[in-house]
């Protein structure tokens, strides 16, 4: 009769036995109540250990370490010189676009073709939104609950908290007809500037998020960018509010979502 010592039981528990030995162990276990109880005790402490370390993994990691691992660019300074610099950059870019692609393409900057061309130039807002989005998406990948300040199951509270955070009325867009269910929102302060990121989920479990922040300036048309081969983003400004929509490019077509979101956020 097979001897069911601790090492064998642990190897069985850890899936380390080949099929023949495994079958022998199972046959021996069927006859040996004491060994079954011992196996259960080993299984139990294993589970307790895993749960305990999982709890430790829920602790937040120091932000300075996160920043060093994946540095976040500082928001662009909002000063006249910077604005002039940006204007020159935009003007140069526009000239290149006009010469290289023709007037038609320039008139429709949100076309997929131009979105691809612009992908190499990710600016601060999309990077910031993509960073928050990525952190949330990774929690989902690792079967962890999203960290949210307001749950999407309370739409009225979500709206109130968003307005309170931004000190301005910004409509939480209802995208349910597009198959997007609100999960909730993070309410954050970055560089002394309040902002919110609203998370939605489609039927396939894919995340789409919308970053909203106060950002004075003229209205802009949506600009599509891809951040470091990662999330796709679309940013625009309307009524002194910056919006950045983020989604995984393989799973979500932002070009289809942007017009709807832009229209519904300012109703």
């Amino acid at each position: 009769m097979m001897q069911l010592d601790d090492e064998t039981l642990n190897a069985y528990l850890d899936g380390e036995l080949d099929p023949v030995v495994r079958a022998d162990v199972e046959a021996a276990l069927a006859r040996d109540a004491e060994a079954r109880a011992r196996l259960e005790a080993l299984r139990r402490v294993s589970l307790l250990g895993r749960t305990a370390v999982d709890e430790l993994s829920r602790l937040s990691v120091d932000e300075s370490l996160q920043e060093r691992v994946w540095p976040l660019p500082k928001p662009e300074p909002d000063c006249p010189a910077a604005r002039t610099g940006r204007a020159m950059t935009i003007l140069s870019g526009a000239l290149v676009l006009l010469l290289g692609m023709g007037l038609g393409a320039w008139l429709f900057p949100s076309s997929p073709r131009l979105a691809g061309e612009a992908a190499a130039v990710a600016t601060a807002w999309p990077r910031q939104a993509a960073w928050f989005h990525h952190l949330a998406a990774e929690r989902r990948t690792h079967a962890r609950p999203l960290v949210l300040d307001v749950e999407g199951s309370e739409p009225a509270r979500l709206q109130v908290e968003l307005n309170r955070t931004l000190q301005q009325r910004v409509v939480v867009p209802d995208l349910s007809d597009l198959g997007l269910r609100p999960l909730g929102a993070r309410l954050l302060v970055e560089q002394a500037r309040p902002l919110a990121q609203i998370f939605y989920q489609d039927a396939g479990g894919n995340l789409v998020s919308l970053l909203v922040a106060l950002d004075s300036g003229p209205d802009t048309r949506p600009r599509f960018e891809r951040v470091d081969d990662g999330p796709a983003t679309a940013q625009w400004r309307r009524a002194n509010t910056r919006y950045v929509l983020v989604g995984e490019p393989e799973r979500v077509r932002l070009q289809d979502l942007v017009p709807v979101v832009a229209e519904r956020t300012t109703r």
Binding site: A52, V53, D54, E55, L56, S57, R58, L59, S60, V61, L65, Q66, V69, W70, H134, L135, E138, T141, H142, R144, D228, D229, G230
Partner: peptide, 24 residues
Amino acid sequence: SSGESRFRRELLALLPRMRGHALA
């Protein structure tokens, strides 16, 4: 580079798990 950026993002996602492991 895009390779380093991708690597850093994957490492970033591992940080909570690594910290839990380091604590234990």
